[in-house]
Simulated assay, not measured.
Amino acid sequence: MIRCLAVDDEAYASEILAGYIRKTPGLELVSTTTNPFDAIQLVQSGEVDLVFLDIQMPELNGIQFLKICGRSCKVILTTAYEQYALEGFEHDVVDYLMKPIPYDRFYRSIMKAKQLFEGDTPKLKNEPEHANGTAFATDYIFLKGDSKNKFIKVDLKDIIYIEGLKNYISVYTSTQRLITYQSLRDFEAQLPPTEFIRVHKSYIIPFGKISTVDGNSLFINNQLIPIGDAFKEAFFKAIKERRS
């Protein structure tokens, strides 16, 4: 059970998040508060695992909160201002939610958080879908660039596959190859498990880009990708579930 805290200087905003938390399996609402100093006390007392944190607050803003408590809990930022996204990711936040926050986007953040807490790819019941029946079909992530303050925005729908190579990974998109210095495991935690799956110790692929599966291999755009023995059972189970 992930213990959650919603912090927002506007009470109605934290109550929306509280409602989402209450109806999502695996989450426990510890409290909501409009006071970031009360939130700091709760986090430092060890009562909270995950904080939904507004950035624009009087007296103490979300970035300042991260500098104080960022190592004591995991944080999902919530804001109406996109310009703080890069600074938030510098503090290793789980995700960055733009207001107004729809439940499906909230849910995807929870999946990321659960992966970080549990080290796997759990699937919650009643998984939300868009109107066209495809869960979380479009979104984006930021890749760490080759300097401290450089981040590259990548649309998930453009990713063809991801390859891990020692201390860095290559992200192949429909137009380019991007290199970022992080582990494949850490990168996997940023991806929605409804759309992506790890099929080998060195490869993550999007379900939607698979053209053929043949024994211990699959093909994406004529690129052969091996299916590792350790990942085979989970992969074929996922394929069967998507057929049903």
Rank of each mutant, 00 (worst) to 15 (best):
K237C: 00
L77A: 14
K157P: 01
L17W: 00
G46W: 10
L218G: 04
S183W: 07
G208E: 13
L218I: 09
G164H: 08
E82T: 09
K74C: 00
L77I: 15
H91W: 08
Y12F: 12
E195C: 13
D54S: 08
F235W: 03
R243L: 15
T78R: 05
I101T: 04
C73S: 15
T134W: 11
K232F: 06
P100V: 02
T180P: 02
I40C: 12
G228W: 00
L165M: 13
D49A: 10
L218W: 07
V199R: 00
A113D: 10
L5A: 10
V93N: 04
F219I: 05
D49I: 09
F236D: 06
I2T: 11
Y172T: 13
N35T: 07
N61Q: 07
A13H: 09
R22Y: 03
K23S: 12
G145H: 00
D158I: 00
L86K: 05
E127W: 06
T180C: 00
V48Q: 11
R198A: 02
R177G: 05
I159L: 03
P100A: 01
M57H: 04
H91R: 10
F106C: 05
I204K: 03
L184P: 05
C73I: 08
N222C: 09
Y168L: 00
P226M: 02
L5G: 10
Y20W: 02
V93Q: 01
G119V: 10
L27R: 03
I227Q: 01
V43S: 03
S202N: 13
A234K: 12
L42R: 15
S217N: 12
E118W: 11
K148I: 12
P122N: 07
L27W: 09
N149E: 11
F52C: 11
I160S: 11
D214T: 07
V75A: 13
P206V: 09
L50V: 05
L17Q: 05
F196C: 06
